[in-house]
Amino acid sequence: ENVVSAPMPGKVLRVLVRVGDRVRVGQGLLVLEAMKMENEIPSPRDGVVKRILVKEGEIDDTGQPLIELG
C-alpha cells in the first residue's frame, strides 16, 4: 500500500511528517479531527514520504488519499 487514505471524513489539523522523511510502521503521519476528536493516522508500513497530498486545515472525505509512501 503506497497511498495512505483517510479512514473517516474530517479536518486535517497537523501534518507530522515532511517529504523525504523515513517513517516506520505505526508512526503518526498526520492528525485528523473528526467528531470533535483528534485521531492520529499511522503509517501502514516502513517507507519514505514521497508526497503529501493534503494541507493543514483542509477537509477530507473517507478514502481520500492523504500521503504517498515510497
Rank of each mutant, 00 (worst) to 15 (best):
R18F: 06
K36H: 14
G63P: 04
G47Q: 02
P9T: 09
V17F: 00
R14G: 07
R45H: 10
M8D: 00
D21F: 06
P7K: 08
E58M: 12
I67D: 02
M37H: 10
K55N: 11
S5I: 14
G47P: 01
I67F: 08
V48E: 06
V19G: 02
L30S: 00
Q27S: 05
P9D: 06
R24M: 11
L29T: 02
V12W: 00
R45W: 13
P7V: 07
V17S: 00
E38Q: 11
A6K: 03
L16M: 09
N2S: 13
L32I: 14
L13R: 05
N2Q: 11
L53E: 03
T62P: 10
L66G: 02
R24C: 13
N39F: 15
R51Q: 10
E58T: 11
G26N: 06
G47V: 02
E33K: 04
P44W: 05
I52R: 01
D61F: 15
R14F: 01
D46T: 08
L53A: 04
V19N: 05
R24S: 12
Q27K: 04
E56F: 09
R24G: 08
P44L: 05
E58F: 12
M8F: 15
M35W: 10
R45C: 13
S43E: 01
L16C: 11
L69I: 12
R45V: 14
N39K: 13
M37A: 11
Q27Y: 01
K50Y: 08
E40Y: 12
E38D: 07
L32R: 00
L69A: 00
G20A: 04
L69C: 04
L53N: 05
G70N: 11
R51T: 09
L32N: 00
G10M: 03
V12C: 07
I67C: 05
L32Y: 15
S5V: 15
N39V: 15
V25F: 11
V54D: 01
L32G: 00
R45S: 10
V49L: 00
Q27N: 04
E56V: 14
I52Q: 02
V23D: 02
S43L: 02
K55V: 13
G20K: 02
G26C: 09
L13H: 03
N2I: 15
R24D: 07
